[in-house]
Amino acid sequence: MLPRFWRKIRYRYNLVGTYCENCRTYYYPPRNLCPKCRRKSKIKEVQLSGKGKVISYSIVHDAPENFKMMKPYVVALIQLDEGPIITSQLVCKPEEVRVGMRVRAVFRKYGEEGESGIIYYGTKFVPDS
């Protein structure tokens, strides 16, 4: 699974998304084709601001195996200021999270494959006051 993770590091670590110059829409996760323009897509990579707001969330109690140590943790749908909605973890106390809350992107650890396996890093969000 290592190459599968490694080859998208650029997008996971820095919140690099894509922008279609034909219809002026931002996408995250990045796409090779714009679903509105298809073959007429003019896709380029862009650095997203990492600022946005929570539009929905869940506090996960029954955690998957590799997230057991973190439970309960908060996952959220975050609408970035550029438009796209992304799924991410929110680093805050479960009781703090609210729909509409402003958040910003940070670089955090997501997990690891055992003691000698690779460590997964990626983007999480924190409250932006």
């Binding site: 929905s56 996960v60 998957p64 997230f67 973190m70 799924t87 729909v99 997964y120």
Partner: peptide, 16 residues
Amino acid sequence: FCGANLPALFAMMARM
């Protein structure tokens, strides 16, 4: 990848 398994995803639909 982010820990959003199927229950968490449906939970976010429910919340909204």
